[in-house]
Amino acid sequence: MEFWRIPLDADEIQITRGIVHIIEDRCKGCGYCIEFCPKEILEFSTKFNQKGYHPPMVVKPDDCVNCHYCEIICPEFAIYSVEDTMNMEKAQG
């Protein structure tokens, strides 16, 4: 993570990691999750789902910080993230 000024406790802060799950057939392709993901880890995929929309796909899976924003803003209940307990990393200054 890049900081303008490094917080004093940057070494101690643990950043949670998340795994994004996408229920592709519920997606209606509004693009909210892609546009508003704070880490910009999502992108439209080229494939179609059952209804003919392009669902999002995860392009940078390691960057997810499990903030659940995609989960709340998705109007279709089609995306959610769960904590990745195996891959907890310390913040890099």
């Binding site: 209606k28 392709g29 509004c30 693009g31 909210y32 929309y53 989960e71 709340i72 803003i73 998705c74 109007p75 279709e76 209940f77």
Partner: peptide
């Protein structure tokens, strides 16, 4: 509809 805000408010 796709992009409708009601779904977000509902969730």
């Amino acid at each position: 509809c796709p992009g409708c805000g009601i779904g977000t408010a509902f969730s």
